[in-house]
Simulated assay, not measured.
Amino acid sequence: MDYRVVQMDEHTWRIEEFDDTSSVYMYLLEGSERAMLLDSGLGMIPLDEITAELTSLPVDVLATHAHLDHIGGNSFFEKVYINELDREVFSLHCDKFRSHYPDYQFRGQRDNIIWYTGEKEFQLGGRTLRLVSSPGHTLGAVSILDVERKWLFTGDTCCQASVLLNLEYTTTVETYKRTIERLLSIGEQYDLTWPAHHKIPVSPEILEQFREAADLLLDKKAEGEDIEMPFGPAKCFYYKDISITYTPDRVFDRNDA
């Protein structure tokens, strides 16, 4: 596993962890008093040494969600914040889910998780991070609004690719649409979105595409193609620059809809 560091501005860095099969972005955000690392990747690179070279301030971790490619390096740090709603998916990805990646030697977790409820705000010193609940890809997924810079960090919620709603502990398309509508409703508060995978940065227009695609599925004006995923069969609806991967039982909030 290799990595590269890209400086985004004087106090912000993107850490890219990658090999031939996987790639994930982490973002180190520095204030005047503390720094926050958004996600900890797969944990195959020395994140403690990398972040120490970039900032002399204490570094905490804030997970956008609890999938294994976002929590793998948690043990490098003293405090890791994860939404309580992702506690079960965290356990799954620390245990059974790792067997899908036999070539990786994952680090163990430690007792450094701070489980929080509701929406939080972090003050780093002249830099405000505001959490926006974003259920969809997981129940406890969050987006992080970097208030002063007008950036929105979205994890896996709206990459310019497919959002996966076909895994254990994902939500319905209907719930996901409400998340996208909420992010669009605060659109005046951000100019760019920074996802955890694929193309970066992403124009807010991509959120509009996800809303349109979800509407077509919910209105039964479109249906995804049958595909086979490593975690079982699913459907994928390709729309413009994005797609939604889902299972037929996770379209509506009620199965009888």
Rank of each mutant, 00 (worst) to 15 (best):
R254P: 09
R110S: 11
T175H: 10
E53R: 14
S243W: 00
H70Q: 10
Y25K: 08
R127G: 10
V251M: 01
V142Q: 07
N166W: 01
L28G: 10
E205Q: 12
E148R: 09
R250M: 15
C158F: 09
I144N: 06
E16P: 15
M8D: 07
P201H: 11
S40V: 14
L145G: 07
H70Y: 11
P248F: 02
I71R: 15
L131M: 13
L62R: 00
Y190R: 01
H100E: 08
F153D: 01
F252C: 02
T172F: 13
L57N: 08
W151Q: 08
Q160E: 11
D256Q: 13
L218T: 01
S23Q: 14
L217R: 01
C158A: 15
L167A: 00
D48V: 08
P135V: 01
G108L: 15
A196W: 11
I144M: 06
E49D: 08
V24G: 09
E119Y: 10
F252W: 14
Q109E: 13
G136I: 02
T193S: 08
P233T: 00
P201V: 04
S99A: 15
T245P: 00
P102Q: 04
N112D: 05
H11I: 06
S23Y: 14
L218R: 03
A213W: 07
P135I: 13
A161Y: 13
T128E: 03
K235Y: 00
E174F: 05
I206A: 12
C236Q: 08
E78H: 03
L217C: 03
L165A: 02
F90I: 01
N74L: 02
L85T: 06
S99M: 08
D60T: 00
E30C: 13
T12N: 12
P204Y: 15
N255G: 10
L38Q: 03
E205Y: 04
E223I: 11
A257T: 06
F90P: 00
D95S: 12
A161Q: 09
G126P: 07
S22A: 10
F97Y: 13
L152W: 10
H70M: 03
F252H: 00
L152R: 04
L192F: 04
E188K: 11
N74A: 05
G125P: 05
A35G: 14
F210I: 15
T51S: 09
K220G: 03
K240Q: 14
D48Q: 11
V5N: 07
M8H: 06
S185W: 05
C236F: 03
G155W: 14
T193P: 05
W151K: 15
A141G: 05
K79T: 02
E188Q: 07
F231I: 00
Y239A: 11
D86T: 01
A257L: 08
D95F: 06
S56I: 14
V61C: 01
C236I: 05
V132P: 09
V147N: 13
H11P: 06
K235T: 00
D20I: 14
R130N: 09
Q7F: 12
A141V: 01
I242D: 00
P248R: 11
R211W: 08
R127K: 12
G155T: 06
